[in-house]
């Protein structure tokens, strides 16, 4: 047996289906929805749906790393708020109404975006360091980020920051080939980067190992602390990108409502996509599917004009169900 395995890679249909069951669910949902509501697959509707899910999706590609490392990031939504108000305040042209800093000239859009992302990275580095070195539960540490960043956003600006410069709004408003919104392009780029890091770099392998068994990872010479800090930086950077895009898309930034509960949707997407909360299991394609499934549910419930509260009930059931199935799948391996 051992001599023949050299480089043979069997294709196992059962394994393939079990790993990709979420895509199957997605296809079924799309077909079903198309039958009940024929506008579903129209270009317009698809674009609206993707645009709407992109920002939470970007958050999910960050948060999945924290879950993979046996942690969580509850701060992402508040980072969206903080970064969006700060970047927005930097791109208000002189002379517009309610300008936060009336005397300050607007920064170029790209510079403001970089500032926003840098702020995200800094927050991630701080919370990551706290988690890695004090060993406090990530749930608590990031609950702290959630409260603090939301409050900082409100302190920074007591009211919404609006009238943003067009060269900043282009990040979300541009279109590729006149049809694909730039926000969706950025979503796909983050997907690609996250996936690349996960499977093609030492960093990704290290996080799988840490999530699977951090003691063993340490013995194998992996610097657990440094890697955890990187994870929380990445998650916060994703949230910051989300914040920049949300401001760019809406042309405004409201410190009290922006990003509210985004982290929960992102966690839900990562979870439905098979990211295990016991650590060590995640697939980027699963998370992509999870984001799309949530998007289709959101969109479908709107198309079917299901009441908002009811749609949350349905989402809740789907998330819990997904985790039950996922735990059973992984229980045998641990």
């Amino acid at each position: 047996m051992s001599n023949t395995l050299a480089s043979k890679r069997d294709f196992d249909i059962k394994k393939f289906l079990s790993q990709n069951s979420i895509w199957l669910v997605l296809v079924i949902m799309v077909i079903g929805l198309q039958i009940v509501s024929p506008v579903f697959l129209s270009t317009n509707n698809l674009r609206t749906m993707l645009e709407g899910e992109s920002i939470k999706g970007i958050l999910a590609f960050g948060i999945m790393w924290t879950i993979l490392s046996k942690g969580i990031d509850l701060g992402a939504g508040s980072i969206v708020a903080l970064v969006s108000v700060i970047t927005a305040s930097l791109v208000q042209p002189i002379g517009v109404a309610n300008k936060l800093f009336p005397e300050m000239a607007a920064l170029p859009g790209w510079a403001a975006a970089i500032v926003g992302i840098a702020i995200g990275a800094l927050i991630g580095a701080i919370v990551g360091t706290i988690i890695a070195y004090t060993k406090i539960p990530p749930f608590i540490a990031t609950l702290g980020t959630q409260l603090i960043c939301r409050a900082l956003a409100k302190i920074y600006s007591t009211q919404p920051v609006s009238n943003l410069s067009p060269d900043f709004r282009i990040f979300a408003k541009g279109k590729l080939f006149e049809i694909i919104p730039s926000i969706v392009i950025i979503f796909l780029i983050i997907f690609a980067i996250s996936g690349f890091m996960l499977t093609q770099t030492r960093f990704g392998k290290n996080i799988y190992a840490i999530g699977g068994n951090d003691h063993a990872a340490r013995v194998a010479g992996i610097n657990v602390e440094r890697n955890l800090i990187k994870v929380y930086i990445w998650s916060a950077v994703c949230a910051a990108i989300g914040g920049v895009l949300l401001a760019a898309r809406t042309g405004s930034a409201d410190p009290s409502t922006y990003g509210l509960n985004y982290e929960l949707d992102a966690i839900a997407a990562a979870t439905i996509g098979g990211t295990s909360h016991t650590g060590g299991v995640a697939r980027i394609s699963g998370v992509l599917a999870g984001i799309l499934v949530l998007g289709v549910i959101n969109n479908g419930l709107v198309l079917l004009s299901v009441d908002d509260n009811m749609s949350n009930v349905i989402k809740g059931i789907i998330i819990v169900g997904a985790v039950i199935i996922d735990m059973r799948k992984n229980a045998a391996k641990k």
């Binding site: 799988y208 190992a209 068994n213 063993a216 340490r218 013995v219 060590g280 641990k334």
Partner: peptide, 13 residues
């Protein structure tokens, strides 16, 4: 089990 193998990862990994 405690600090040797990472059970979920493959033999190669």
């Amino acid at each position: 089990r405690g600090n040797g193998i990472i059970g979920l990862l493959s033999v190669a990994e």
